[in-house]
């Protein structure tokens, strides 16, 4: 007789397998298509193995322009969002004021709103207030609106663990506010700032919804992908996806190896 424990184990095991098949199989299909000679992106029929779609992708100057734009936008989003997140987290963790909860609600509201609303409102604001039509700048502003919120939450989590008497001690030993900030506060928050910067970069690099409405006629990589996928679909997009997947897996492996090495050190 099979015990109920075995049944439970089997059930859990098959669920896990199914879950990850569901998660990864589409990505496998997508990668496979990148190497099929067929001009229509499809897994079957298999017409032959080729690297041609990577060549097509690399020859597309639009893609390179979009990639460069993505880097520019992501760079400025990091430059803007991390300081905003830092300032807001200092304000919220250090000062006690009555309207703190409502203020907090306003600061996290961009995280709970659909991206297209942020994109649209940013676009309208810069158009109305400064007669700036959509472009990289409005895309940067739209993305920073909610990415700053993520940065704030991340930095706040660490700032709350800070032992404030260290700052008092530094003051007492003659440091100015600037010195205290640079020598004591900032070094403590550094890990959170690095994580926030990395997250901000990736969020920006990925963003489609807010950017779509804010960016006007310019293109970042997701906008480029979107327009390609909506018009004439070519397996070159699969080649791009394949590169994304490769980078991600490499990143994950490197991260895991580094984490293990760090764990052994301790």
């Amino acid at each position: 007789m099979i015990s109920s424990r075995v049944v439970l184990k089997l059930a859990i095991g098959s669920y896990l397998v199914l879950f990850f098949v569901y998660l990864f199989l589409p990505l496998v299909f997508m990668s496979v298509v990148a190497f099929n000679t067929s001009t229509i992106p499809q897994v079957t029929p298999w017409e032959g193995f080729t690297f041609n779609w990577f060549r097509v992708l690399f020859a597309d100057s639009q893609m390179w322009d979009a990639l460069i734009n993505s880097f520019i936008v992501a760079f400025f989003v990091v430059i803007i969002s991390v300081p905003i997140g830092l300032a807001a987290s200092l304000l919220l963790t250090r000062l006690q004021f009555k309207a703190r909860n409502s203020f907090y609600a306003i600061l996290v509201s961009p995280l709970l709103m659909p991206g297209i609303i942020i994109g649209i409102s940013t676009f309208l604001f810069w158009d109305k207030a400064f007669h700036l039509s959509g472009g990289l700048w409005t895309a940067i502003m739209a993305q920073s609106t909610f990415i700053s919120g993520y940065c704030m939450l991340l930095i706040m989590a660490r700032a709350q663990r800070f032992n404030k008497t260290q700052e008092d001690a530094a003051f007492d030993l003659g440091a100015t506010h600037r010195q205290v900030f640079l020598k004591i506060t900032l070094p403590f928050l550094k890990p959170a700032l690095i994580t926030a910067a990395a997250l901000a970069f990736m969020q920006s690099f990925e963003n489609y919804n807010s950017t779509l409405f804010a960016i006007g006629f310019e293109q970042t990589l997701p906008i480029y992908i979107g327009s390609k996928l909506r018009s004439f679909i070519s397996p070159a997009m699969n080649a791009l996806a394949c590169i994304f997947i490769l980078i991600t897996i490499t990143g994950a492996v490197v991260y895991e190896v580094m984490r293990r090495r760090e764990a052994i050190k301790r």
């Binding site: 998660l23 589409p26 299909f29 997508m30 996928l229």
Partner: peptide
């Protein structure tokens, strides 16, 4: 954890595109 995070890092558009390959008329 890594298995969950990997798809998360791949662009939303491409994740949706993967389903286009599966569900289209000539799809998988």
């Amino acid at each position: 954890l890594v298995g969950l995070i990997i798809p998360y890092w791949i662009n939303e558009l491409l994740r949706i595109f993967a389903w286009q390959l599966i569900l289209s008329d000539a799809g998988v």
